[in-house]
Every structure is written in C-alpha cells, then in structure tokens.
Design a protein around this nucleic acid. Sequence first.
DNA 1: TGAATAACGATACGAGAATACCGTATTGTT
DNA 2: AACAATACGGTATTCTCGTATCGTTATTCA
Lengths: 210, 210
Amino acid sequence: MQTSWEEPPERGRPRRSGADEAILKASRELMFEHGYAGFSMDEVASRAGVGRQSVYRRWPSKAALVVASMTWTFDSPDVFKDTGSFEGDLRAGLAIMRDLYGQSSTDIFGDVYFAMASDSAARELFNRNYVAPRRESLARAIERAIARGELREETDAVIVSDMVSGPFLYRILIGDYELNDSLVNAIVEGVIKVFGTGQTTDVVTPPSGT
Amino acid sequence: MQTSWEEPPERGRPRRSGADEAILKASRELMFEHGYAGFSMDEVASRAGVGRQSVYRRWPSKAALVVASMTWTFDSPDVFKDTGSFEGDLRAGLAIMRDLYGQSSTDIFGDVYFAMASDSAARELFNRNYVAPRRESLARAIERAIARGELREETDAVIVSDMVSGPFLYRILIGDYELNDSLVNAIVEGVIKVFGTGQTTDVVTPPSGT
DNA sequence: TGAATAACGATACGAGAATACCGTATTGTT
DNA sequence: AACAATACGGTATTCTCGTATCGTTATTCA
C-alpha cells in the first residue's frame, strides 16, 4: 500500500528510510491514546524522531496523516471473499466490518471519518486506501453472484455498496454505536431481495463476533 | 426549536434578546458564503454585532454553532407525512431528502457532517435538532404502516432508519454525491421487502426532483 | 570533482480557536 | 440603597496548524 501522500522525487538527497513508517506508527499510537484532537503534529514528530517539517513533507495535513495512519496495515481489503454463495460472501464481509467497528474504542472511527471529511487530501487518501479496495472486493463478489445466477445481471454495484456500507456508517457516526446482528441480517436480506433472482446457494455461516 | 446550547440562567442580567438569532443568522450566511473553514468566530461576532465572548457564552465551539445554525429553521421535521400508504410516506420523505441534499451547494452538508463529527456538543445538537425529529417522523410512519397491515408488527424502527438514512449519508460523505432515483427505489424496495407483509396499498407518487 | 537537487532538524511566523480576564451595564433580591 | 449574579463588548494569552526559511547533509548527474 502506498503510504505517503505523494511519491518522493528521484533526485536530491533521498528520504530517510523508515521515517514514513515511524511517523505512521507514532500517529496511530497517539490516535489510540488521545484521539484526533488530543495530540499535535509536534508530538507526532518528536515521537517519530523527526523534525516537524519532515512530517509535512510526506503528508499535507494532520487530517491526511491520520487517515493514512489509520488505514495503514489494515487486514486484507478483500473482505468479501468467495465462500461459495453471495449471501455467504456478504455475511463474511459484514462480519469483518462488524468486528472491526464493534470493538471497544469506537470514537476512533468517528475521528477518522471526521478527519476524512475535513480535508480533500485526507478524503482522497481514504478513498484510495480504504474505500476503493473494499468497493472492488464487493464488485467481484457481485460478479461471482451474477455468474452463479444468484443476482440479476443489471445489479448496480454502487447501489449495493451504498446499501451495505451506508447503514454501518450511519450507526457509527449518528446512531448509538451498537452494531448488532439484526442490522446485518436486514442488510443481507434487503440486498438479496432487491437484486436477487430467487435462486439461492447454500450458505456457510461465518462465526459470530468475538 | 431550542437554539443555544444550554438554557441561560434565570438570575443576573438577561441575555440580549435577538442576539441568538443574529448569531445564528450570521453563521448561516457565512457558511453559505465561505464554508466552514472560510470564516472565523470573529467574523460571526462582528457580523452579528456582538462580542466574541457572547458567542462562546451561547455555543461552546465553532462546530456546535455551525451545526445549530445549519439545523435552524429547516422545514418541518415531519418529512414522512401520511400519504395513505407506507411506500408513499417513504417516497415522499426520501424525495424531500433527495431535493435537499441534491441541490447545488452540496459541500455545505459535508461541512455540517464534519462539524458534527468533530465535537461532542455539536453531535448532541445535531441529534437533538435534526436526527431525532426525523427518526420520530419515520417511527410514526412505521406505526401507521403496521396499523394498516403493510409492515409486520415486529418491524424495528431503528433498523429501518439505518437502512433509509444510511445510504444517503454514505453517498454524501464518501460517494460521488449523486443522489439519483435508482438509489431511492432500491431503498424503498429493500425496506418493504424485508419488513413488509406482502399486503400493499395504492401509492401516490411524489413529484420528481427539481 | 563540482554543481544541482532535495532531504534533514530547527526555528520563526501568521492565523485562528478557545480561554481568561477587564471594567461596565442590567436585572432581581435584600 | 446595597449587593449578588450575570451579560455586555473588548483585549490579552495560550495553543496548534500550516508555511517559510535557515544552514547542513546526502545523493545524482555532468
């Protein structure tokens, strides 16, 4: 995954190797310790052992750095893996999302979305590093489902993406942060009933949340 | 609607009448003119003709003020009016939301969500002034639908709310801001197929977007 | 070998948010 | 009439983001 905002130039003194990772690591730690508003770029720089200008050389804003550090080294973005049926793929992906967002420090994710919304560079990083790979993973699952005859050929992957991810985002940002299985079931049922052909395949149920 | 963050005390010199509205109006105007990052609390205060401290006496942060001013004097929060059928109620409410968010200056709403997410006071104001009334409006529509026999009795109003509002929020914050009728249709179809009884009532179609 | 380029840490700076005061003004209570 | 409480406009202060600039250092190219 691309970490810094822009590729460094090829001429001149090269950037110190390992500095990118040190900065990302420091930003991530400080996010979990103090949240977005609770730390400064000075602290990031000093914890990473670099000058502050070296941070701004790699990311154009605090928001962009935070988004980069929080979308860095997430598990495989291919969350909607092939389980043999579309419902299984969908449930597997949603189980991953539910476990991720359902863990203790939920305010963190609100902070990340806040950072994302506040800055165009952060928004672009968020799309590139997080949203796009997951969208593509879902699009592949939809293609498999169409090939299997589970979904109709004209299924709109963008709308499915909205229907799948939207309610999660809504709960995290606005709702009471409780991500339960009822919501997952409703989403799965809704998508399949709207875009399905009626033909189903046996489902391998994913394990319930940790 | 309650405007300022906390009720003023009952003792001592009373707050200048009209100042609340002047501040909200100034904040709103500046939001439409320059966006969230494009104006300062000094400008709000001077345009409203008050001291800056008088602004902070009423709202604890810029984010809270912006949320209060942008959720102030919206049209009736009862967006899911009784049209005779649940599908009609839902389509009417979604048409209002689509027209609202679909209008030209969409970045404004991104800014509002950003402000909302960045501050706990702003979040609380947003819930109190905006989300809660619309949630209740939808809950009433669901109750009517259950009474008519269109929805099952165990329909979970919170989940329906997530399924209805989530995709819209997702498109505004993360998607390409294009709120089209395909999305509305998929949402309506999804909710009714998941929670419906199969019994339907004739739909009065709302006018399509401006 | 020398010039060009760009990173490095460090520091100064301007802008704006939020807080803390100042003296003054306005209300209700004693 | 005196007093407590609070609002008022105004100003100073602190904090942090983001930009600019310093002299130094490392690397590539001619």
